[in-house]
């Protein structure tokens, strides 16, 4: 287990070296989402695949989540971006990194790319978006509702009946995070980048949405705003693309890295997309 003290907060960090012990083909940083998420979403799935393909993989539990410390306050987006900067500095990751973020993890990735464009080689954002006034309003609504609902026994019993005990337990843990911290009020109060700042993100970006996600309709806006951004859609999916379609995400991540010029290696990485995966993805928007 690896713990790293960053500015007084203890972070749970997992770093996987390339499986063949050779030089890393790239450094990929995996960023998880809010509330029910942790680095465990990657540790058993995408991370070993990337390490087997010759990448160095860096993942950590974001503040308040997983096994990382939980300060009572300090949950604005800029705090999360500070954490990522401090982590990269502490681990002396100086070269450009590939960022892969799920949901809020992608929002953190965009924040870092706006701050340190030279350090980000590319972003793969799953069901995610950069922070914006609309994002803050939406998150405010979601978090307020979660804060009142997820501490109620009746809500958790309903979740258990509808979605199973496992999901109910995750929901209960999310309720405790919201009850113990100022996260629900801090996120909407984050400093929001204006469009000029977002346009400064020059690295290639691939965004992945579920076709049934409420985020999907904004793909065109983001593709147009960013210098080099395109989107793909996973049919039938809502927000849980990473959890529900791990095979699709795995293939997308490998082909995205290859496309970015990363020399992946190891068994199986030269294979074309798994039959079926290619067919289910719907490219949209002009590829620039």
């Amino acid at each position: 287990m690896a713990f790293l003290d960053l500015d007084g907060l203890r972070f749970h960090v997992q770093r996987l070296a390339p499986q063949d012990a050779g030089p890393p083909a790239a450094t990929v940083v995996l960023l998880h989402g809010l509330l029910t998420d942790s680095l465990a979403s990657y540790y058993f799935t995408l991370a070993p695949v990337l390490a087997a393909a010759g990448a160095e993989v860096l993942m950590y539990d974001q503040r308040g989540h997983g096994r990382t410390g939980r300060p009572p306050t300090g949950y604005r987006l800029e705090d999360f971006a500070d954490d990522l900067e401090a982590l990269l500095d502490r681990l002396e990751v100086t070269g450009p990194v590939q960022l892969l973020g799920n949901s809020f993890g992608g929002t953190v990735a965009f924040a870092l790319a706006a701050r340190r464009p030279e350090q980000v080689a590319g972003i793969l954002a799953i069901e995610s978006e950069p922070a914006s006034p609309a994002w803050a309003v939406k998150l405010d609504g979601i978090l307020r509702r979660a804060e009142t609902e997820l501490v109620k026994k009746s809500t958790l019993a309903w979740v258990a009946a509808k979605r199973g005990r496992h999901t109910a337990r995750l929901a209960g843990a999310a309720g405790r995070l919201l009850a113990e911290t100022s996260l629900a009020r801090d996120i909407p109060a984050s400093r929001l980048p204006d469009e000029a700042e977002l346009r400064a993100i020059r690295c290639p970006v691939l965004t992945v949405y579920g076709t049934r996600s409420d985020l999907a309709p904004q793909a065109g806006w983001l593709d147009g705003l960013l210098h080099d951004c395109r989107s793909v859609f996973v049919p039938g999916q809502e927000h849980s693309v990473l959890v529900e379609t791990p095979d699709v995400v795995r293939e997308l991540a490998l082909s995205w890295l290859r496309e970015r010029g990363v020399q992946l290696r190891g068994p199986g990485v030269d294979a074309v997309l798994t039959p079926g995966v290619d067919a289910v993805l719907t490219p949209a928007g002009p590829v620039r």
Partner: peptide, 10 residues
């Protein structure tokens, strides 16, 4: 929780 399985793995 799944994060405990990460701890166990280590």
């Amino acid at each position: 929780e799944s994060i405990d399985l990460v701890t166990l793995a280590g």
